[in-house]
Nucleic acid binder design. Structure first.
Lengths: 358, 358
DNA sequence: GATTAAAATGGAATCGTTAACAATATTGAC
DNA sequence: GTCAATATTGTTAACGATTCCATTTTAATC
């Protein structure tokens, strides 16, 4: 047992405060009685239905406010076949990678969604029964996807007819709304910057094979290089898997080359950190001996030594746009499904040095 | 505009998949018709009511399974006055500090809570109207509290009679269930370790004034020191406010002393990082010239150079125990309210050096 | 086989809301 | 002042489950 539990018993919960003893809540019928109208009229008035005369509408709203009326969303849900909850699903709540996202995502979504909605957060991997994912239970679903293992879930949701937006990971499927960062142009911009700083011997540590993001980032790299007509040595293209360890390992390979690169683009920050560790170990100075650019701008990119120049994806913005999109989809059925790409931003810090072009 | 939006319109959502066109869902009445019994009997059977004969109960369950029946939780909620949602509230979804928590917390809670429950995640600071926090809407609430500004929220919840567990931050109030780490003993353990390594000139950068956690950690420090009968210079007790900047600033003060300490305990990792920055700036080597211990084991404690020796709080465990406690509270009303303290763990890394006792 | 208690099932109301349809006011034109 | 058209409000029935209170079946006893 790792943790010892110290239990201090204090006293018993107060019975008077229990639900069963609560004052019954105000309902539209109570309001109706006071206003001297039918509860239907109250319902309509509170929903701002213009068919109700303005004076009675105002009167009813006033009474409702006085009584501190709060609608029962369960009853509403039942009759309107809505759930007033939006599901937010993560690839895996377990994987460390998602950590930095989660807050931004929740923040982005909460900024857009009505306060009466619940945001139900779940890990896809912890769903036991896909059949419990029903339109009746979720008015809409946002998937913050980080792995193609999410696909079966995504297609289940689509199949079930639940309005759906997939964030962060590019899907092939054009019938599903998809919001993500434009990784390719982000990398292009970063490599353009590296070139401007005089670097020509530029290497890339690629991400996990088979991931769309790995491919996009590599493409951006290649595009920028070929546009600048800079030759790329094949030994400068090495394959990582997004892990710190792979960054460490691949960086060592690069450093051991006869002609090591002057700048290494790491396809994510984790690998960049691994790469930096490899440099420390060999006592190679960053950025004096070698420059490094990462991707993601994870939280501690600003705490490494030197601090890491990296490409930031607008996670909060992605989530927000995604949430807005979802709400659109929830509203009307015949709106165009789209893929939205948002621009990344190059965060300049200390890990890139200007070199003289030889 | 920071982000340019590239919008690619693809095509229109498929009408056939929309909610309104769905097959009507299976209800208990459908099952009743097939089983040749009343829907009342079906309800009881599905709820495992022993008053229903075992054979019919089994038959009904079989039919329900065949039809892929899923109960309508809105209807259930309405009549049973339950919401089937648990609220998870953070001090602030905005503050960066909560980032690393969030995942662990959600993970911990989801591990315990029934899949039929929704876990609704919110930031306390984004609540517009406290009156919408009702027993009718939340069966129970978990507060991951990081600031005493949460108190008004916490007391509202208590007042409303919603089962409540407060995590992470120590409340004075013994009538509220409280699960947190035993900071004091954690610090004591760490300082004992420092003493074992031969350190005697040990300083502390305290946390934010007025925070219970600051006090607890300081107490642990003092206890350990006084038990070991080590003299504490008053200039070794300095006050930070948990921010990186304050760590930087206070560390500078300590380094400028005539007799600087050989080891500094920072009351959180953020301040430890600030302190490390201060050392780099003065070209003071860690741990050769000075040792550092942090508190929290935030994610990038393992990526600093040198990596940070620090005290880890069992966040996932706290959340899990908290969730278990909440479920207990939701079940029966007359169970003892308690304060539960969980043990921390000292994570040994590279920022502490062994010195010879002079 | 009748009587009775216990076991098993069914009927109808209920939860708080919306909505189709019916009914009543109000208004304006003549 | 009447009538039609329109504006406003009310009646009643859902929504899908649970539950109180019958009612029917079954089992047990004599």
């Amino acid at each position: 047992m790792e943790s010892l539990t110290i239990l201090t018993i204090h006293f018993y919960t107060d019975f008077k405060n229990r639900k069963s003893e609560e004052h019954p809540l105000v309902t539209i019928k109570d309001i109706a009685k006071i206003a001297g109208v039918s509860h239907t009229t109250v319902s309509r008035a509170l929903n701002g239905n213009p068919i109700i005369k303005k004076t009675t509408r105002d009167r009813i709203n006033q009474i409702a406010a006085d009584l501190n009326y709060i609608p029962n969303y369960n009853a509403k849900s039942l009759v309107m076949k809505k759930s007033y909850t939006i599901g937010l699903f993560f690839s895996s709540i377990d994987q460390g990678t998602s950590a930095s996202f989660l807050v931004d995502v929740i923040k982005g979504i909460n900024a857009v969604v009505d306060e009466n909605y619940n945001l139900s957060v779940n890990g896809i991997d912890s769903i036991k029964n896909l059949d419990s994912i029903l339109p009746q239970r979720f008015d809409g679903i946002i998937v913050m996807s980080q792995s193609d293992q999410d696909n079966s879930f995504i297609y289940h949701v689509k199949q079930a007819g639940i309005p759906l937006v997939v964030l962060n990971r590019q899907l092939g499927d054009v019938s599903i709304a998809n919001v993500l960062a434009d990784d390719r142009s982000g990398v292009r911009f970063a490599i353009d910057f590296a070139l401007e700083q005089g670097h020509r011997k530029i290497a890339i540590i690629e991400g996990k094979t088979g991931f769309k993001s790995s491919l996009e980032r590599k493409e951006g790299f290649l595009e920028s290089m070929s546009r600048a007509k800079v030759n790329i040595r094949s030994e400068y293209l090495v394959r990582g898997d997004y892990s710190i360890e792979s960054g460490f390992k691949q960086m060592n390979r690069l450093l051991d080359l006869d002609h090591p690169p002057t700048l290494v683009f790491c396809s994510n920050d984790d690998m960049a950190i691994g790469a930096m560790k490899a440099c420390y170990a060999k006592n190679i100075q960053i950025p004096n001996d070698i420059s490094i650019i990462g991707f993601d701008d994870i939280m501690f990119a600003q705490y490494t030594t030197p601090t890491l120049t990296t490409i930031r994806r607008p996670i909060a913005k992605i989530s927000q746009v995604g949430a807005e999109k979802l709400i659109e989809l929830m509203g009307t059925s015949n709106i165009p499904v789209s893929q939205i790409l948002l621009d990344t931003k190059l965060i300049l810090r200390e890990s890139v040095k200007t070199v003289s072009v030889k």
